[in-house]
């Protein structure tokens, strides 16, 4: 039903934004880490968002089931086309150069005395976190507004 898929839209956005905040948390936690288990410095994670149309999978069965009936199903499919949520298509590793510090006494220093840290930019991560949390809040508001409107619709005429 069309009225309830708004929750899927807002919910998918909340899930995607929380995954973005998780990536930021992982990056911030590893901002000063020197080398992971594989011996390489930590690379910053960045989630990539992608538009995820809801209409296709929701109405695909309806459209095929009513193919002979024509009219209504195709009309519904076309009405919901262009609506959809968001999903995380991939998590990319940042290619930014790793931070190097001259610390000859450090146990993990190389021959020249440099220690390689992760390539996390804490300032950019903080900005990303704030942006993600604001987007999350906006979607929570969409969810709550739609919920109260639907609740009022259910008691229509009373």
């Amino acid at each position: 039903m069309a009225a309830f898929s708004i929750f899927n839209v807002a919910g998918s956005a909340m899930a995607a934004q929380s995954q973005r905040i998780n990536a930021v948390a992982s990056n911030m936690a590893n901002a000063d880490s020197v080398a992971g288990p594989d011996g390489k410095p930590y690379q910053a994670r960045q989630v990539v968002f992608e538009y995820a149309p809801l209409a296709r999978q929701a109405n695909a069965s309806l459209a095929t089931a009513n193919l002979a009936g024509g009219g209504l199903a195709t009309q519904m499919a076309s009405r919901s086309a262009g609506l959809g949520g968001v999903r995380v298509s991939s998590v990319e590793l940042s290619d930014a150069p790793a931070r190097q510090e001259y610390r000859p006494d450090h146990p993990l220093a190389d021959e020249q005395g440099y220690v390689t840290f992760s390539n996390v930019d804490p300032v950019a991560e903080m900005v990303d976190m704030i942006a993600a949390s604001k987007s999350y809040e906006a979607n929570v508001e969409v969810f709550n507004t739609s919920k109260s409107l639907l609740r009022k619709t259910l008691t229509l005429g009373e």
Binding site: A3, V9, F49, Y51, G82, L83, A131, A138, V142
Partner: peptide, 24 residues
């Protein structure tokens, strides 16, 4: 009017959901 408002609500929700999606 109500049906149309509900539909527009969904379109706007999609926009807000995809506020950070590249190319949307």
């Amino acid at each position: 009017a109500l049906g149309l408002r509900a539909e527009r609500q969904q379109v706007l929700a999609t926009n807000i959901a995809n506020a950070d999606t590249p190319g949307y």
